[in-house]
Design a protein around this nucleic acid. Structure first.
Lengths: 191, 191
DNA sequence: GTCGACATGTAAATAGTTACATGATTCT
DNA sequence: AGAATCATGTAACTATTTACATGTCGAC
């Protein structure tokens, strides 16, 4: 009975944290902390969770029987390792088969640009310069992931091609954004 | 005193609905309904608000003195027209000068693709086919906006160049996504 | 010994959407 | 007369982040 409000608050449709966690546990059993680490290294550009969402969610998933936990304290400090169950796999695969819901993005950059006529070109340019630099850094990061982290994974590893595709998404969109920013900057500098 | 919780709940940093509204009112005075309409026609691909956020926000902005309202009932049914004040302009321009905050996007499509190794290529392909079709439609929409709505705006109108840039962003990113999807589909179809 | 990474959690604030609710006017 | 659009709003729910809180272990 206790915790039932918790249950409801996280179980309803729209919450996809659970699937991100289940998907990661499907690769291998991990602790909450390790899940967080893994996300930081891999999915961070298209999916992030905070510790405040991971730990409660793991408890809920365990209560639901989607994962089982196991206390580990081999030499190191204690930690709780979670493993996905058949029931968890089933739920995850059912989600995988569903078409992704519409993503409503909100871009503060675009909003500011859209309202650009209300201020000076100089001010807008400042924003765009900052942005192009950041994107170039991001693109560089992607390149490094490709040559470092990803290249050490065997070509036979079934996840590799998909990880590559996700990375490629980032690269192509970064390039598109750089192209766009360059165009905008050129237009605004002319005046 | 009453409504103070409301006040706080909407005034805190992070809430940018206010700026979207102020920016639109800067172009000309409008009713809540008209703001909604305008957003649907122009910013919807990078910024949307629902009626449940517009109306309360307009009241708050009025209480803060950022907008003033005026009841109108010329022949038609009554409506409340809002106009931005000098104070509102000041706040808006201060926001314009700030660099946009980091956007943390969450993409369910990317997440599913990332986990693609856990299911069949066929299933992933189904998702990608659906997506590429949707994006092509979106791109088509952009083209139509360019030739219809935007082309009727005078070149001299100070907002036009910025509206064009926002549109161009959509087009370039759509194209990047189509390229990416085509690549992914080719890879997955080979097996 | 202290700093950074490991490890786990709660509470509160904030954000944002959906559903609900109402009623007028215009068009067919 | 009935449907679509105009017009405005509230309540409830759901999601998500930030800040708080605590303690361990290993390295330097």
């Amino acid at each position: 009975m206790q915790g039932s409000h918790f249950y409801r608050s996280v179980m309803k449709k729209g919450n996809k944290s659970r699937f991100a966690i289940l998907g990661i546990l499907l690769e291998k059993p991990r602790s909450g902390y390790e899940i967080l680490q893994f996300m930081k290294e891999s999915t961070t550009h298209f999916w992030q969770e905070s510790d405040a969402s991971i730990y409660p969610m793991l408890k809920i998933l365990e209560k639901e029987g989607k994962v089982v936990s196991q206390r580990e304290s081999t030499g190191k400090r204690e930690r709780t390792i979670f493993q996905i169950t058949d029931d968890g796999k089933k739920e995850f695969l059912a989600w995988m088969a569903l078409p992704p819901e519409k993503e409503n993005r909100r871009s503060e950059l675009l909003l500011k640009l859209f309202f650009g006529g209300n201020t000076t070109s100089k001010e807008i340019l400042k924003t765009l310069y900052a942005r192009i630099q950041k994107i170039q850094e991001t693109k560089e990061t992607f390149k490094q992931i490709e040559t470092a982290a990803l290249s050490s994974v065997s070509e036979k590893y079934p996840h590799k091609r998909f990880w590559k595709m996700a990375l490629r998404y980032g690269t192509l969109h970064s390039e598109a954004e750089i192209t766009w920013l360059t165009e905008c900057i050129k237009i605004l500098e002319k005046k």
